[in-house]
Write a protein that binds this DNA or RNA. Structure first.
Lengths: 239, 239
DNA sequence: GAGTGGTCTAGACCACATT
DNA sequence: ATGTGGTCTAGACCACTCG
């Protein structure tokens, strides 16, 4: 329940509670949350406070509100993952794409200075490294290396089925990812990257670095991805 | 003043009025707006209504609010354009960057099939074309070409000071841009692009296509930008 | 007609900054 | 002490959706 004596505003407490419940699947995507009136009764706060909590969730894209109907859970954006890159060649083909991946490498070593800085941890602390080659319709398009603090996900390197890494983190370790930052560059691939992606000479690639955070803003994953630049494009919606 | 009989909410009317006054320089950057109490008296609305208007302006980065002091006009975000690209080399330098631009070309011609498709207009209808070379600290980093329907902004091609295009559209034509889509690719520059950006051989570039929309989802601008890929990076926040 | 979210008001208490 | 923005309440009316 809410704590009126806390220095944390009530609307923010409520927002956090609702978001946690959404992430834990109390209401699935497309299902309605309780109405504002019900929430005021349930949490014993005014309607404005409820509305402010809901407004923030809406602004962050977790719910959508509809006059006369109610508020419902929206499709999460983080799962777009691969989906943020759209195939240029196939952008107009109707059918769904066939996505697969192959693990190139799994290991557990010390973080090293670069990864440690991104994950805000000690350079000597252990991390799990997972390298994956991801395919779209059988064609290699993305070379991806993830680094996670071993302390947060012990024995992750022993798991072989990592198709849906974020789902696995949720189910196995109770790690939820609330937000992420991505940094894109346009660069020439290294010979190794060009080999794995079967890239002809002179084709540039996206270099995408992603850092994922928990609800408490703890860095969970540093991900380094290389994507073929000429055949795929990255879409961003600005509001 | 505000019109209580209008279907447009009071907070939105007030927000629009305040934004216009900011854009017209009634208060300069760093100057304080009237306090919330003064605004309630001046516009004869409740404090919550004033606060909602101010909250939207704050969320859009036009003002900043400070407890116990007041609300003041914020530094414009360089149209948010350049800001999405962060200099790698200078990312840790403290001082503000010096941004400038030079117009390479201005014209008014028919749209042609590609631009017409993006702007959802007739290929034979006229568009204004503006090519700009943009500099950061004196170094050319971005080559940008904008296409706008001439019907929406007549005589725009005759304007010479287009540093802040979006502000100019707002003040002169009353065109507000609510949202935009961007599509990124990583490609090799054309010889002309490499020349303007003074790019050494083999350096990839971002190709960014942006379509901007009004609140009524009418396409206002199609923009084609080329940015040096190795020295700048594009940041995306995922929620 | 009943329930929903959208807007608006009048008033209150708080933490913070300035005088 | 005064004024500022930040939070919160109780109540009201509206437009919309659905049965």
């Amino acid at each position: 329940m809410l704590d009126p004596t806390s220095p944390i505003p009530l609307y923010y407490q409520l927002k956090t509670i609702l978001l946690d419940q959404i992430l834990q699947g109390k209401w699935l995507v497309g299902e309605f949350l309780p109405s504002e009136n019900e929430l005021t009764k349930q949490y014993q706060v005014s309607r404005q406070t409820v509305r402010r909590a809901l407004a923030e969730l809406q602004r962050e894209g977790r719910i959508s509100t509809h006059k006369g109907k109610g508020s419902l859970v929206a499709q999460p954006k983080l799962e777009q993952d691969l989906l943020r890159f759209y195939s240029l060649a196939r952008s107009f083909s109707k059918g769904p794409h066939r996505v697969s991946s192959r693990i190139l490498h799994r290991d557990r070593t010390s973080a090293g200075p670069v990864v440690a800085r991104h994950l805000r941890m000690q350079a000597t602390a252990p991390v799990v490294i997972i390298s994956r080659l991801r395919y779209l319709d059988g064609e290699p398009i993305m070379l991806e290396t993830s680094y996670l603090p071993s302390s947060m996900c012990p024995d992750l390197e022993k798991e072989s089925n990592l198709e849906a890494l974020y789902d696995y983190l949720e189910v196995t370790y109770g790690i939820y990812i609330r937000r992420a930052e991505e940094f894109l560059q346009a660069v020439s691939p290294t010979p190794e990257e060009a080999y794995h992606l079967k890239l002809p000479q002179g084709i540039p690639v996206f270099l995408v670095e992603r850092i994922s955070y928990t609800p408490k803003d703890q860095a969970v994953e540093f991900r380094h991805s290389v994507i073929r630049g000429d055949r795929f494009r990255y879409k961003v919606e600005l509001h």
